[in-house]
Write a protein that binds this DNA or RNA. Structure first.
Lengths: 205, 205
DNA sequence: CGTTCAAGTAATCACATGTTTACTTGTTCG
DNA sequence: CGAACAAGTAAACATGTGATTACTTGAACG
């Protein structure tokens, strides 16, 4: 597959020629990128090592295996995504727009892509489902949903539709669909506000 | 990977022990299923052949290669998806709900999944982008959008958000997120109507 | 029946991939 | 310095995978 060197500035610190921590970081970043855009199965350890500019064997040294490296990429996913959860309903559209289109949190977007695109693996399915469920329930809670009240199952479904839209945005942006792909957070906020309102506002017919 | 035999009724016709057309069909169905749920790279030709209950070599006989089989799965995708495009705005929610949750059109859903999940391949990226773009433009047109009018770029973006939601529904349903995963078309239509209205109705603030 | 050819099969090939091994080289600290 | 150890490297290994080959078997037709 096409090579893509990923060797961002080592941020200060005189570049030592042998730096285990830095090598680990390079591998993690390259892996996250590859896994997110090409998927787990289509990515080879040699691709990753080449991108990172590092010897292949070091993947097994630092992460035991390809799967270990993948697991390391997933580390901290849940907490990272949990951050958007606590926001009050009014700020949700802004938060989503910022997280999906903002210049910051590039890693977050990659992990989201990775999570959504990876399939077949039991473990990933589990993590994905957990993240999605928690996210949707928090969203629904902000709109008055309480677990166990069957009357409000509709509300949970509607919260999950917001999630669907978010997931779709991540994927379709990665697909390069214009103008969505190059829309800024500010561009996305108004439509998202309408969308969230339509799904969760109490005063709907 | 786990085996899943896929051998639906040969619909009438006394089962001949040697039937090229039927074998081709079995291979196509097994392949579509595997590619959709496991992704292209994670699927092996032996998996497919086993699911279809057919000798591996026949894949190469009938489709030249694994890639050829994949291409055959994609055959007719565009036209198949185009069908929802022509519907008037009012019926769009129903159409989407039916196509994503209806019992019919199982192949359509599989192909959508396949299209959304497959990544890295140039050809697939091209097809996916084309389908998405056409779909969004038709949706936007129904709401009054005309190509080239920069004022109405917002409308196209909003139409694409409907697409995002649709794509998200397909993927999250496949992930087993409840209650979304088991929601019927009738369950989905009302929220989708609100969503489409919020995105495309002219009389919004 | 028996010829003929498509349909199907098992064995094998060539190669890519994840991993391991034996080795070399840089860094640290006495 | 120089011993000791971690970091890094190149080569090889074992296996899984897509594809090919030489072969067998069933169906169609005179």
């Amino acid at each position: 597959m096409t090579p893509r060197s990923v060797q961002p500035a080592p941020t200060g610190a005189a570049t030592r020629r042998r730096d285990a921590a830095n090598t680990r970081r390079l591998l993690l970043e390259a892996a996250r990128q590859r896994f997110a855009y090409d998927g787990y199965a289509a990515t080879t350890v040699r691709d990753i090592a080449d991108d990172a500019g590092v010897n292949v064997a070091l993947i097994n040294r630092y992460f035991s295996s390809k799967e270990g490296l993948f697991a390391a990429c997933l580390e901290g996913v849940e907490e990272e995504l949990r951050r958007t959860g606590g926001t009050p309903l009014g700020e949700v559209p802004d938060a989503i727009a910022g997280q999906l289109a903002g210049s910051a949190g590039d890693a977050t977007k990659q992990i989201l892509l990775l999570l959504l695109r990876s399939s077949g693996d039991e473990r990933v399915d589990q993590i994905r489902l957990g993240v999605l469920r928690a996210y949707a329930e928090r969203l629904a809670s902000a709109a008055g949903w309480r677990p166990g009240e069957p009357d409000e199952a509709q509300l949970l479904l509607r919260a999950q539709l917001i999630l669907c839209a978010s997931a779709g945005i991540v994927i379709l942006r990665a697909s390069g669909l214009q103008p969505l792909a190059s829309a800024s957070g500010a561009d996305l906020t108004p439509p998202l506000r309408d969308l969230v309102d339509a799904m969760l506002s109490a005063e709907r017919k």
